[in-house]
């Protein structure tokens, strides 16, 4: 359980520089409303991912279980390999509810960051702005929520990457593989401010 203490330490004290501009873009244009991130919409379905997490020099692994309840609510539980529930959290569009968490992870900044990651990964939003990319194979849509900006990068109809920016800097990126269905086979989360890297691979044969 002490393995999770570094999460709090790193999130509290570590900060690194990151670019403030989405790379390889040259401005944008207004478009008609379009829904971005239509993954994870199938209500009732439970999906399980093998999770490998690197926090600085620490590594841990386990299982991430996720369920979409309705248009607004997704619920996540991260389990250790021996089955212990590390965190169980309900994510809504604008807030979250913490159902349970082990004491070693029970830090406000950790919970807030976990909620932000999962919300960005799974919630659909409406965009009215397309960003012009130098890569003509990509279509990039931007949304603004408060001081945050999020960019959704599509190749054809497949969502390939979500990049989430704070007021001035990139906060994290989420990449998807095989996103040709509701649930990507692989997901990679890379935090720009903290030394946090998460790899998720779908493994539904345990459900």
């Amino acid at each position: 359980m002490n393995r999770f203490l570094p999460i709090s330490v790193f999130l509290l004290i570590f900060s690194a520089c990151a670019t403030s501009k989405y790379p390889n873009t040259t401005g944008g244009k207004a478009i008609q409303e379009i829904e971005v991130n239509s993954l994870f919409l199938d209500t009732g379905t439970v999906v399980s991912y093998r999770a490998n997490i690197e926090i600085g020099k620490e590594q841990l692994s386990g299982t991430l279980v996720m369920r979409t309840f309705n248009a607004d609510l997704r619920r996540f539980a991260l389990l250790s390999d021996l089955g212990q529930t590390l965190i169980d959290i309900s994510i809504f569009k604008d807030y979250h509810v913490l159902n349970s968490v082990i004491p070693a992870m029970d830090k406000k900044i950790v919970i807030k960051e976990v909620a932000s990651l999962f919300r960005t990964m799974t919630q659909p939003y409406v965009s009215t702005k397309e960003v012009i990319s130098s890569n003509q194979d990509l279509r990039i849509y931007e949304i603004e929520r408060g001081a945050n900006r999020t960019f959704y990068s599509y190749s054809s109809i497949d969502l390939k990457e979500i990049a989430h920016y704070g007021k001035h800097k990139e906060r994290f990126k989420i990449s998807f593989e095989s996103s040709d269905n509701q649930y990507p086979s692989s997901i990679f989360l890379l935090h720009s401010r903290f030394p946090l890297r998460i790899s998720l691979k779908q493994q539904n044969d345990n459900l």
Binding site: R67, G83, N99, L207
Partner: peptide, 15 residues
């Protein structure tokens, strides 16, 4: 066989 029960998942998760 390891069975994990989560309140929001109907079935046990099996390893």
């Amino acid at each position: 066989t390891q069975y994990k029960k989560l309140g929001f998942v109907d079935k046990e998760i099996i390893s």
